[in-house]
Amino acid sequence: METKVIINEERCKSCSLCVSVCPKNVLRISNRLNPKGYHPAELFNNDECISCGFCYLICPDAAIVEVRRPIKVKS
């Protein structure tokens, strides 16, 4: 499945606020380094993400660029 949370890692300052407000604990600070020297946040469990958008709402740096929900297809 496509990612529900699009993160611009270059803008992330590793403040962890997204991680702290995530009700499903599906975000974490990665081990990678971005060009500014911060460890960017990452979505590590896309399946469990409920697309609530809390991460987007609290992110001060527009690093959480987009939050999406899968469209339910009638079978």
Partner: peptide, 12 residues
């Protein structure tokens, strides 16, 4: 996918 939140264009 349906976009619920997206960074606005006015935010540079």
């Amino acid at each position: 996918m349906k976009t619920l939140y997206k960074i606005p264009e006015a935010f540079t």
